[in-house]
C-alpha cells in the first residue's frame, strides 16, 4: 500500500519510504537468572506491513518477546531477523506508560529520537510537528507533560515513536492504563495510522477485544514459557469503527480468541 505524505514539515525520506519489515523469529529462547525459561524455542513469522496482536495471560513472556524483537534484550538462543528494509531497519517502541521527559515540552519530546540520531534542529522539529499532527496534537506542542491528560501523554508517546518513520512499530500494552473511551479513540487512531503509513505493527495486549478490533492477525500465547496456542487471521473489514465492536463477525472472532486463550491455560 502507498503511504500518503502529510503536507506539513520537511520530509526526511522519500514518500512511502516506511514500508514495513518482515519479522522472522526462529527457535527463540530466553531464560532469566534463577528460573524457568520465559520463551523456549519459539518460531514466529510476521509479514511485512501487517498488524499483528500478541495476546496472552500476564507474565507469559509476550513483553519479553517484544523486547527481544526490538533488540533491547539478548536471546539465550535462536534468532530475530528483520528483513526487507532498504537500509538498517528503524524500530520504534511504545511502552505501557507514556514515559515522556517531564522537563521537555511536547514538541521537544516528540523530536527526541531524531535529536539522538543527530538530525539538526529545524528538520527534527518539522518532523515532530508532522508526527504530532498525525496523532491530533498539533495544538499542544508547547505544553509540558504534566499539563496533559493521560490520553494526550500517550499520543505524544505515539508521535515520538512515529517521528523516525519506523519500519516496525512495537507496542507493549500501550493503552492499558487509560479509561475505556480514551482507549477506544486511541485504538482508532492507531489503526488509521497503520492503514495510512503501511508499517509493520506488533501490538502486545491482554485484552481480547482490543486484539480483535485492531489486528489483522492475532497470535495467542500460553502461560510461561510462551508457546503459540492459536494463530488466527481475523476476518474483519479493513475500515473499522465503533460499530464493529457490536457486530456479529467481531463477536465471533473475539470468541475464537477467547477459546484459544483458555486452551493455553489462562
Amino acid at each position: 500500500m502507498v503511504a500518503t505524505e502529510p503536507s506539513t514539515g520537511a520530509p526526511l525520506h522519500a514518500v512511502g519510504d516506511a514500508r514495513g519489515v518482515r519479522v522472522h523469529v526462529e527457535h527463540l529462547r530466553r531464560v532469566f537468572a534463577m528460573g524457568m525459561p520465559v520463551i523456549d524455542g519459539l518460531d514466529l513469522d510476521i509479514a511485512a506491513g501487517s498488524f499483528v496482536a500478541l495476546l496472552g495471560p500476564s507474565g507469559c513472556g509476550k513483553s519479553t518477546l517484544l523486547r527481544l524483537v526490538a533488540g533491547l534484550d539478548r536471546p539465550d538462543g535462536g534468532t530475530v531477523t528483520l528483513e526487507g528494509a532498504p537500509r538498517h531497519a528503524r524500530v520504534a517502541f511504545v511502552f505501557q506508560d507514556a514515559h515522556l521527559l517531564p522537563w521537555r515540552n511536547v514538541l521537544e519530546n516528540a523530536a527526541l529520537p531524531l535529536e539522538l540520531s543527530g538530525v539538526d534542529g529545524a528538520a527534527r522539529r518539522g518532523e515532530a510537528r508532522r508526527a504530532l499532527a498525525d496523532v491530533g496534537l498539533a495544538e499542544a506542542m508547547g505544553k509540558l507533560p504534566h499539563e496533559l491528560s493521560g490520553g494526550m501523554r500517550m499520543r505524544v508517546s505515539l508521535a515520538r515513536a512515529l517521528v523516525t518513520r519506523p519500519d516496525l512499530l512495537l507496542l507493549d500494552e500501550p493503552f492499558a492504563a487509560l479509561d475505556e473511551m480514551t482507549r477506544q479513540r486511541l485504538d482508532d487512531q492507531l489503526r488509521a495510522l497503520w492503514v495510512r503509513l503501511g508499517l509493520t505493527v506488533i501490538f502486545v495486549t491482554h485484552s481480547v477485544d482490543e486484539a480483535a478490533y485492531l489486528a489483522e492477525r492475532a497470535v495467542v500465547f500460553s502461560a510461561r514459557p510462551a508457546r503459540v496456542v492459536g494463530d488466527l487471521a481475523l476476518d474483519l473489514p479493513r475500515e473499522r469503527n465503533a460499530a464493529l465492536r457490536t457486530d456479529a463477525a467481531f463477536a465471533k472472532e473475539a470468541r475464537a480468541l477467547r477459546d484459544a486463550l483458555e486452551r493455553g491455560g489462562a
Binding site: 523486547r67 524500530v91 517502541f93 539522538l116
Partner: peptide, 14 residues
C-alpha cells in the same frame, strides 16, 4: 532514572 527511558535512549542509539 526510569528503566524504560534508558531503553528508549538505547533504542535510538544515544
Amino acid at each position: 532514572v526510569e528503566p524504560a527511558l534508558r531503553d528508549l535512549f538505547r533504542l535510538y542509539g544515544a
